[in-house]
């Protein structure tokens, strides 16, 4: 680990200016992933800009009835927020399905969005990795790739995004508020994370020096029926093999709107837009859900060790849709 300086930010504007002066500086809040990465020699920042004491810790109603969640709200506080539990239960459940209580107490909303893949090849500097060192190659493609991507991967990178919370935010059509030297801008959640393409070193569409300030949830009445289903190798404290955030809005006997996002399958939280479009106007039954699941996975390209994820994803989608169409709850 290289020596670095550490300083506490006194304002958003000032810390952004500091970050823009030094491209090797990094923001730190909870540090639950960044510190691990530094210890593994994956990140070697010149300075850590500690934003954790900035006044960005509240959750407030927006004028249109949604929620504005400051970037420094801890995962624990967000999951336990009464409005979130009532109006967006899938978000609460997604957060509680991840990490451990201790980590959730430290981790923040903004940091959760910025966590990087847990691909074992990325995490060990004994291996080449295009994400860590662009152009060196991806040994995971022909290696032990059981936990890797089945959707949207490239010949440069097959890593998956590890976040649970982000899968729920993708399904909820959230917006990410970011601030940079040029001022503030909004990024639709589905455009926040990137597919690997030729530049797997870039996880997100944040510009250098930009800081996440908030995540905004639009009002969504049917989110109360939302479901988060996480399938993994042990009952707690493991990343998703496959996860699904889903919500179904019914109008009489028909589905009027559906949302499906998948975790553990791609380099970003994966919105199954075509499957959502198909569900519109359909009758909620097993056959419908099966067709939707098939559509969601039709582009899947499994690797040597992860073909099971295709089938598991389909099954998880069917289950999540079925539970949501019955009003939600634990899937």
């Amino acid at each position: 680990m290289k020596n670095f300086t550490y300083g506490r930010a006194s304002s958003v504007e000032e810390v952004i200016e500091q970050a823009n002066r030094d491209r090797n500086a990094m923001y730190i809040a909870g540090g639950t992933n960044l510190v691990d990465r530094m210890k593994a020699f994956l990140d070697e920042p010149s300075q850590l800009l500690d934003i954790s004491r900035l006044e960005m810790q509240s959750i407030e109603r927006t004028q249109d009835g949604g929620l504005r969640i400051d970037a420094l709200v801890t995962n624990t506080d967000l999951a336990n927020n009464a409005n979130v539990r009532r109006d967006y239960p899938l978000l609460s459940r997604a957060i509680l399905a991840g990490a451990s209580q201790q980590i959730r107490n430290m981790a923040t909303v903004g940091g959760n969005l910025m966590q990087r893949t847990r691909c074992a090849y990325y995490y060990d500097t004994a291996f080449a990795c295009n994400k860590r060192q662009p152009g060196t190659g991806c040994p995971a493609i022909n290696g032990i790739n059981r936990i890797h991507a089945i959707l949207g991967a490239s010949d440069r990178c097959v890593a998956v995004n590890p976040s649970d919370m982000s899968v729920a935010l993708a399904a909820l059509d959230a917006t990410v508020e970011v601030q940079g030297e040029q001022g503030q801008r909004d990024i639709p959640f589905v455009d926040f994370h990137r597919l690997p393409g030729d530049t797997p070193e870039r996880d997100t569409n944040l510009e250098p020096g930009e800081l996440i300030t908030a995540v905004v949830l639009p009002p969504m009445a049917f989110a109360q029926s939302g479901v988060y289903l996480k399938l993994r190798d042990r009952a707690s404290y493991a990343f998703a093999l496959v996860s699904v955030a889903a919500a179904v809005e019914l109008s009489g006997d028909q589905i009027s709107t559906a949302r499906i996002a998948l975790g553990g399958v791609a380099h970003k939280p994966w919105r199954a837009s075509e499957a959502e479009a198909f569900l519109q106007g359909q009758t909620p039954n097993q056959s419908t859900f099966e067709q939707a699941a098939d559509i969601a996975l039709q582009e899947a390209q499994p690797l040597a060790y992860n073909a099971f994820k295709v089938d598991l994803s389909r099954r998880a989608i069917r289950r999540a849709l079925a539970v949501s169409s019955r009003g939600g709850g634990i899937a």
Partner: peptide, 24 residues
């Protein structure tokens, strides 16, 4: 597990090597 090409372990810590949690 070991990477077949390089021979290096790809399971090497308590995040990649799962032991039971209380919930199991």
């Amino acid at each position: 597990h070991f990477d077949p090409a390089s021979g290096h372990p790809v399971v090497y810590d308590l995040a990649t090597y799962h032991v039971p949690a209380h919930a199991d």
